[in-house]
């Protein structure tokens, strides 16, 4: 019986809390009229949220909704017909998949930012790049389908061809991989939690967190991630989508991207 009265008390408390948390309606005078739905690579999570805020500040009649996930997942969703306005991919391959699915006009694709790879480490088992191949180290990278995973494998290929590292390095690193994660943010989380000793992510992801050590990958082995964006052929709110697209490529958009650690002058360089 005493549990019953206890549970009644808890229930009342929950009701009270719900009352306090209920949004005070009526404050927003005009409902936003045009909703831009942005499908963006997981590594863009923080910077796109900022860009979205800045965009709606200059376009009060716009609302921006984001779907952040691994680019490969977004490309699959688009191929299955998910309604969206804009697709920002972390690599060419997944943008090509969206083009192949007929959702994107290849002529409308724009390169808007670049990032490079770094190794993030927690704990003291990985202090230098060569430690990645030390037996017993637990390493997480992105799955092959995930852009950051494909870039990580390309880095290992480059290292295998480099006499300073060689094939044993690649083999040793791959033997240490304990999980192929679904997005770059999942890789970062596993390292931050200390579940893995190290992971390979974008420099921009590592910059956003303080609790991991960052180990640079030499430029000659590093892989540039080319971020590409395109409005969809059947975009939701096409006019506002174009506005968002130009905002992203404007000096204000570039400023926010640079502040988050992305390079924007790679836009002149052509992806291979």
């Amino acid at each position: 019986m005493k549990y019953r009265s206890l549970s009644i008390c808890l229930f009342c408390l929950a009701l009270l809390c719900a009352g306090c948390l209920a949004p005070a309606d009526g404050s927003s005078s005009k409902p936003p009229t045009q909703e831009v739905v942005v499908f963006a690579a997981a590594s863009l999570t923080d910077v796109f949220a900022e860009i979205g805020t800045a965009f709606t500040a200059t376009n009060p009649q716009a609302a921006v909704t984001f779907n952040f996930a691994g680019s490969q997942q977004l490309a699959s969703q688009l191929a299955e017909g998910a309604p969206a306005s804009l697709f920002a991919s972390a690599d060419q391959r997944q943008m090509d998949a969206a083009v192949a699915a007929g959702r994107v006009d290849p002529a409308s694709v724009a390169l808007f930012a670049c990032s490079r790879l770094v190794v993030v480490a927690s704990g003291d088992r990985v202090a230098a790049l060569s430690d990645l191949a030390t037996p017993g180290v637990k390493l997480v990278i992105g799955a092959d389908a995930v852009p950051v995973g494909a870039y990580a494998l390309a880095f290992l290929d480059a290292a295998a061809a480099d006499p300073a590292y060689g094939e044993p390095f690649r083999a040793g690193v791959l033997a240490n991989v304990v999980s192929y994660e679904q997005s770059v943010r999942a890789v970062l989380s596993k390292v931050r939690l200390g579940e893995a000793d190290a992971g390979i992510v974008y420099a921009t992801d590592a910059q956003a967190v303080a609790d991991v050590a960052v180990i640079d990958i030499p430029t000659q082995l590093n892989q540039l991630a080319y971020y590409q964006v395109a409005p969809l052929r059947d975009a939701i709110a096409p006019e506002m989508t174009r506005e968002f697209f130009s905002f992203l490529l404007s000096s204000e958009g570039k400023g926010l991207l640079s502040a988050a650690g992305f390079s924007t002058d790679c836009a002149s360089a052509t992806p291979e």
């Binding site: 991989v177 999980s179 192929y180 994660e181 679904q182 579940e195």
Partner: peptide, 12 residues
């Protein structure tokens, strides 16, 4: 499973 055990073909 994916959160706790991760994703590795043949292992998890």
């Amino acid at each position: 499973t994916i959160l706790f055990a991760g994703n590795f073909p043949g292992r998890t």
